[in-house]
Amino acid sequence: MPRKEASDLVLRARIALERLRNGEADRPLINLVSQVTLIVRFVVQAGHGKLDIEVLEAVKRGLEDALAEADNTGIWNVSETLIDGLIDVINEYDRQICVTRMEILVRASDHLDRLAYQAAARDTRAANSHVQLAR
Results as ranks from 00 to 15, higher is better:
residue 5 E to Y: 11
residue 92 E to K: 04
residue 48 H to V: 08
residue 11 L to S: 14
residue 78 V to C: 05
residue 5 E to V: 15
residue 122 R to T: 06
residue 120 A to Y: 08
residue 135 R to P: 01
residue 122 R to E: 12
residue 24 E to P: 02
residue 105 L to S: 04
residue 91 N to V: 03
residue 3 R to T: 09
residue 71 D to Y: 11
residue 19 R to Q: 13
residue 111 H to S: 14
residue 11 L to E: 14
residue 41 R to N: 11
residue 1 M to W: 07
residue 84 D to P: 00
residue 10 V to F: 03
residue 69 E to A: 08
residue 112 L to I: 08
residue 120 A to V: 00
residue 117 Y to I: 07
residue 135 R to N: 08
residue 43 V to W: 10
residue 59 V to T: 00
residue 56 L to F: 04
residue 11 L to Y: 15
residue 127 A to G: 07
residue 3 R to H: 06
residue 123 D to G: 09
residue 6 A to R: 06
residue 18 E to N: 10
residue 18 E to T: 10
residue 116 A to R: 13
residue 135 R to Y: 09
residue 88 D to I: 00
residue 107 R to G: 10
residue 32 L to N: 02
residue 27 R to K: 13
residue 26 D to S: 14
residue 110 D to T: 09
residue 9 L to D: 11
residue 42 F to M: 10
residue 12 R to S: 12
residue 83 I to S: 05
residue 8 D to H: 08
residue 51 L to Y: 01
residue 10 V to A: 09
residue 91 N to W: 03
residue 36 V to I: 12
residue 130 H to F: 09
residue 99 V to Y: 10
residue 117 Y to K: 13
residue 48 H to P: 02
residue 71 D to T: 11
residue 64 E to M: 12
residue 21 R to N: 06
residue 44 V to C: 15
residue 12 R to Q: 13
residue 102 M to W: 11
residue 107 R to Y: 11
residue 52 D to H: 08
residue 73 T to S: 15
residue 74 G to A: 05
residue 123 D to C: 01
residue 129 S to L: 13
residue 131 V to Q: 11
residue 70 A to Y: 10
residue 129 S to Y: 08
residue 3 R to D: 05
residue 124 T to I: 14
